[in-house]
């Protein structure tokens, strides 16, 4: 169980704001922190990892105190045993895939490397240097490297934002698999609703440094406006007006579908939820 109560003044694009959060994460839970860029999501992860120091508050993991401003405790990142996957992967360019993992491993964990190479399908790539890998492959190495030390907490900072939809979907499945297999407590920072929807047990919506909503992704994102029998999230790529109705083309995971709507307040690029009511599909803004 991770308990957090943090306060820190951040400098956003619209000036200073205070990041102030207070929440508890259960063991083996998959939590997503969702919010616009600059809302303080990444800072939360960095504070848990020890890369940034909160002004006030505490962070505890089980009975270990990571940070406590009152007791003046601030464990350095080296002592927190947290797996951190950076947005830009942060693979060491001077080392091969295998060397990246070996660098991370303590001596007694060498067999863990073999297991991770197999699990993440990296065995053939083990002697390559990071710059000879695709984005998805680099991401898998970063994930494997974060896991070598057997952390109990896995922190993912927008890990899939730079990948194409196909690779993204595949990696989402792998992240979910790893989360279960290693019984991790995972915190994912993302601004991608479908991703949060797919992966997390609970989502925490962050706005201007404050938590404005917490709950299961279905509850938080769908607001219980639909039956939930069948629904998916997509992006509007085209809108054609025909008489009084609109034919809206929606892209979802590489598939393209057309939906008819009588409302005309949609715009291209918007994310929408497509679900069915009675028999015909309907789309709702999210």
């Amino acid at each position: 169980m991770i308990r957090l109560s943090l306060k820190k003044t951040l400098l956003g694009s619209l000036g200073k704001f205070v990041l102030e959060i207070d929440f508890t994460i259960q063991e083996n839970e998959f939590i997503a922190i969702y919010g616009k860029s600059g809302s303080g999501k990444t800072t939360i992860l960095r504070m848990i990892a020890g890369l940034e120091k909160p002004e006030e508050g505490f962070i505890t993991f089980k009975d270990i105190v990571y940070f406590d401003s009152k007791k003046k405790i601030h464990l350095p990142p080296q002592k927190r045993n947290v797996g951190f996957v950076f947005q830009n992967y942060a693979l060491f360019p001077n080392m091969t895939v295998l060397e990246n993992l070996e660098y991370a491993a303590e001596n007694h964990r060498k067999n863990q490397i073999e297991e991770l190479l197999e699990l993440l399908d990296l065995y053939q790539l083990k002697d390559r240097y990071p710059n000879a890998l695709s984005g998805g492959q680099q991401q898998r190495v970063a994930l494997a490297r974060a896991l070598v030390r057997n952390p109990k907490i896995l922190l993912l900072d927008e890990p899939l934002s730079a990948l194409d939809p196909f690779t993204r979907t595949r990696l989402q499945e792998e992240i979910r698999k790893i989360h279960k297999y290693y019984q991790l407590t995972t915190i994912l920072v993302s601004h991608d609703k479908p991703e949060v929807f797919k992966l997390s047990d609970r989502v925490l919506i962050l706005e201007d440094g404050k938590i404005c909503n917490v709950g299961k992704p279905q509850e938080v994102f769908l607001n219980r406006r639909t039956s939930g029998k069948y629904s998916f999230i997509g992006t509007i790529i085209d809108i054609k007006t025909v008489d009084v109705i609109q034919i809206i083309t929606i892209e979802t995971k590489g598939e393209i579908i057309e939906v008819v709507s009588s409302e005309n307040n949609f715009s291209v690029g918007e994310q929408v939820l497509v679900s069915s009511k009675a028999f015909s599909p309907m789309i709702i803004k999210i």
Partner: peptide, 24 residues
Amino acid sequence: SLIEASYTLGKSKLTTLFKIIIPN
């Protein structure tokens, strides 16, 4: 982030300097 990654992997500042920073 290379330096920070090394820290989160439990490596000291000195190890990070000689194994990560200088070779790069």
